[in-house]
Design a protein around this nucleic acid. Structure first.
Lengths: 198, 198
DNA sequence: CTATAAAAAGACCATATGGTCGGATTTACC
DNA sequence: GGTAAATCCGACCATATGGTCTTTTTATAG
């Protein structure tokens, strides 16, 4: 694999596990047995490096785990349920889980680096737009109650997902997942299309 | 005010705004116009310093904003609604909001410092226990449907609150708050006690 | 084989960091 | 006023950090 790819992959790994500010360029170089020269040949700075990681790896990761799985013409509530369930199951089985990578970086860079924040927010927006669209389509197709505010539902879903991933990192992730999912279904039941009365 | 108090207050401020790893002891000292000697006279290390801040300031802060407001014999769903609304309103009006301080530190220290994580998790547990107790009492008093899983509801509430505070930091906090609250009420409607059929 | 450019090495630099330590200064108390 | 303890100062240290620069290696085309 090309050096540039290895650098980005290992960078994302370490930044996710240890945080951006708590991970030095030397840490990454040591892990790959590379030199400073190799690094600064491919990237202008640590910040430039991270931005490329965001665009090349993080964006795709979020897309493949949170966006693509909810596309389709089925009941969006079922798709979202399965999507969240799968994502959390991966986290549970990952002995070293550090929460939702996107949420973590949002927390780390908020108020500290506007450039990086813009890139992260772009990803958040893509997710949000996709969620809203999916919910609206679901409403149109008769899966959701027609009174549902899809923007609000999307915000609520994103919030709860970010939060539960944070909570899961501290204690009893499996129990947290189970409890979360049960209440997510409860919430979904309250916004799904009501059977028509004859 | 005593030097030790000033150090702790300013420390919490800066750690919240910039993160623990991204804030140096010198940063805090400069802001207070104090010297290294003063700092290391009162604290053994940066870590010891932070732990004292957690116990003296963070724990109280969480208690006064998230725990104490939901104590009482009224409808717990109303109390929680008002508590979250107030907390988020404070965040909205704070031009420089960095999210839920507890959630942020959980994210920053997860997998990096077990000692600090234990202290943070203790606070999380206190909050959780209080939420569960309040909900159970509410069920006993006929405010909640008798089928509600109170542990699950507490997890769901904590998750969504952590998450929405993170989301609010990135864009349109006021809109996010409004949307979140509307869906929180929706969820609450689905777990409140159902009127009895005659 | 050689010329050329891409890729990588690694010594070096300025600055920042957490932490130490001997001494100065302030405070409390007799 | 004198004394001892509490408080604070700031120079100093070892190490770490992001980044630069020159040199060497590697690959590739003619």
């Amino acid at each position: 694999m090309a050096t540039m790819q290895r650098l980005q992959n290992t960078g994302l790994e370490l930044f996710y596990a240890q945080g951006y500010y708590n991970t030095s360029v030397d840490d990454i170089l040591k892990k790959l047995d590379l030199s400073k020269g190799a690094f600064y040949y491919h990237f202008d700075s640590k910040e430039d490096y991270f931005i490329q990681i965001i665009q090349n790896l993080l964006a795709r990761k979020i897309y493949s785990t949170l966006i693509e799985p909810i596309e389709g013409h089925d009941n969006p509530l079922s798709l979202i349920t399965k999507c969240f369930d799968d994502a959390m199951e991966t986290a549970v089985h990952n002995e070293m889980d550090y929460g939702c990578i996107l949420s973590n970086f949002l927390t780390e860079f908020n108020g500290k680096n506007d450039v990086i924040m813009r890139h992260l927010n772009e990803i958040v927006t893509v997710w949000e737009v996709n969620l809203v669209t999916t919910l609206q389509k679901g409403k149109f197709n008769g899966y959701l109650d027609r009174h549902v505010d899809c923007e609000a539902a999307a915000t609520f879903l994103m919030s709860s997902y970010f939060g539960v991933r944070t909570l899961m990192t501290s204690e009893a992730p499996s129990a947290k997942k189970y409890r979360f999912m049960s209440q997510l279904r409860q919430y979904f039941k309250s916004i799904e299309a009501k059977p028509v009365n004859f």
